[in-house]
C-alpha cells in the first residue's frame, strides 16, 4: 500500500488557481522528486501536504490515515492536527532554525516538548530527556555535525545549517520527509554536502519527497519524478525515463532550458 496518497488536490489563492487537481502516490522507502519551473505549484503542493496551507478540495492520506479531506468541513482540533503533522517532516529552503538555541537544542526542542505528553514523563523525566539527547547526538553524528553541537546557527555555514534542519526534522521520526528546494539558498559549492546527506537517507530507505532544481541529482537519487506545469502534473514516471525520454513538449522545453 502506498504510504502517501494524494487525490484531486486543488488550491486557489484568490482567483489564481495554483493546484488544478493533483493526484499522486508514493510507496514506502521510495524517493520522489517534484520538478517544474517556478510558479508551477510545486511548493504550494508541498505546503498543502504539510498543513502550511489548507487545500480547497481533495484527499491526502499518509500511512493509511486521512490527514486532509476537502469534503470534511468541520474544524479539526489543534491537537489532532499536530498529531497528524508529526507523521510528516519538512525541511525548508531557508532552514528556519531557531537562532537562540544551539545545534543540539534546535534538534531536541520539539521532541522534548512532545515528550511532556507521555504519561510516564513525570516519573522518568531525567531518563527520557537523556534518551532524547542521545538520539539527537546520533543523528547529528550521522550528519557529520558532532563537533558543532554547542554552536549557534549564526556560527554555521549555510550547508551546516541545512544539515541541522534535516537532523531536526529526523529527530521526530517522520514517516515521510519533505524537502522544499533544500539547496536553493546555498552557494553552489555547499550544495554537495546536502545532496550527500539526502543520498545517505535514501540508502537507508527513508521515504522522501524533494522539490528541487537539481536535475542530475533528482535523476540519480529518486525512484520517481513528477513534472509539474501550470498547476497540473504534466508528466510522471521512473526517474531515468522522465529525464532521458521526456514525452511531453512542455517537459522537453523545460529540460532544455535547464541544461542551457
Amino acid at each position: 500500500m502506498a504510504i502517501l496518497e494524494v487525490k484531486d488536490l486543488t488550491k486557489s489563492f484568490g482567483k489564481t488557481e495554483v493546484l488544478k487537481g493533483i493526484s499522486l502516490s508514493l510507496e514506502e522507502g521510495q524517493v520522489m522528486s517534484v520538478i517544474g519551473s517556478s510558479g508551477s505549484g510545486k511548493t504550494t503542493l508541498l505546503r498543502c501536504i504539510n498543513f502550511l496551507e489548507t487545500a480547497d478540495s481533495g484527499l491526502i492520506t499518509v500511512d493509511g490515515d486521512v490527514i486532509f479531506d476537502g469534503n470534511d468541513k468541520k474544524k479539526r482540533k489543534a491537537k489532532e492536527t499536530r498529531e497528524k503533522q508529526l507523521k510528516i517532516g519538512l525541511v525548508f529552503q531557508q532552514f528556519n532554525l531557531f537562532p537562540q538555541y544551539n545545534v543540539l537544542d534546535n534538534v531536541t526542542l520539539a521532541v522534548k516538548l512532545k515528550a511532556k505528553d507521555r504519561p510516564d514523563y513525570k516519573q522518568n523525566r531525567k531518563q527520557i530527556l537523556k534518551e532524547i539527547d542521545e538520539k539527537a547526538l546520533r543523528i547529528l553524528d550521522d550528519m557529520g555535525l558532532s563537533e558543532k553541537i554547542n554552536n549557534y546557527p549564526c556560527e554555521l555555514s549555510g550547508g551546516q545549517q541545512q544539515r541541522v534542519s534535516i537532523a531536526r526534522a529526523m529527530a521526530l521520526e517522520p514517516k515521510i520527509l519533505f524537502f522544499d528546494e533544500p539547496t536553493s539558498a546555498l552557494d553552489p559549492e555547499l550544495t554537495g554536502e546536502i545532496l550527500r546527506v539526502i543520498r545517505e537517507l535514501a540508502a537507508k530507505k527513508m521515504t522522501m519527497v524533494i522539490v528541487t532544481h537539481e536535475m542530475t541529482f533528482a535523476k540519480e537519487v529518486s525512484d520517481y519524478i513528477v513534472f509539474m506545469d501550470d498547476g497540473v502534473i504534466a508528466e510522471e514516471g521512473k526517474a531515468e525515463d522522465v529525464i532521458n525520454n521526456p514525452k511531453t513538449e512542455r517537459l522537453q522545453a523545460f529540460l532544455s532550458k535547464i541544461s542551457d
Binding site: R82, Q94, N96
Partner: peptide, 21 residues
Amino acid sequence: PKGQYEAGQVLGMTKAQTFFR
C-alpha cells in the same frame, strides 16, 4: 520571520509553545 512560526508548526509545537519558546 514567518518561517519561525512555520518551523514550530511543522515540528508539532503548539502556538503557545512556538511563541514562548
